[in-house]
Amino acid sequence: MSGGQSALGVRHVSKSFDLGKGRTVEAVRDVTFDVEGNSICVLLGPSGCGKSTVLRMMAGLETPTSGEIAIGGRHVDGPGRDRGMVFQAYTSFDWLSVRSNVEFGMKINGVPAAERRERAERFIQLVGLGKFADAYPSQLSGGMRQRVAIARTLANGPEVLLMDEPFGALDAETRWLMQELMIDVAEKTDTTMVIVTHDLEEAIFLADKIVFLSSHPGRVKKEIVPTFKSGRVADKEQLVRLSGYSDLEGELMHMMREEGRGHE
């Protein structure tokens, strides 16, 4: 798709929220990391570590208090179609069919109808919704609605796909399928992805690189490349059988515990 090296850089980013009456709370402190082009970067950490805030700043939905975020060398200033976002909550436009949902982004960006159709069809097929292109979102299950959101975002041709706990509301079985789908999508479309999660298994399975954030305020505790995978693994069952999997899971679990203990 976008090809090239559309790396995303986060440089010394901090974010404080104004609570009113002169009080502020620091959510993120001096976060720096890079997302390599065509890779999957997972932001992992305990709840309250500000990982969603970092993602929202990448999307341009929040403004950093200090520091800078750049995509492909361009300064991020507000939301834009180069950074598509998938949320945990269902965001399907209920009044539009699956097909029109997927075409939505292209339509508002003036992509000609024929090209729109063709691209929408391709991404609907990619996420496995071919039979439901004319259904309304309300007729679909939760997992299928997230597929619609993913197809809609990808069809719009973003340089980076940002996902905020996209499978958090799904049951375990559906979540596996969706995670495997994301690997498939990453392989087939060469999309750069940044995924926020607190699910260790999900992080290890999806990540080419894990950025672990500590909590209150969020700081980068460690960057981890799960080298034991030697590339991507297409299926979840295979992953847990690899030697090295449980070591990494143990390490991450320990880090999670440590963070939790310090603040409760």
Partner: peptide, 14 residues
Amino acid sequence: VREELVETALTLGA
């Protein structure tokens, strides 16, 4: 109207 719908549209370039 849910904020996520608005934010989705914004990140799609609206």
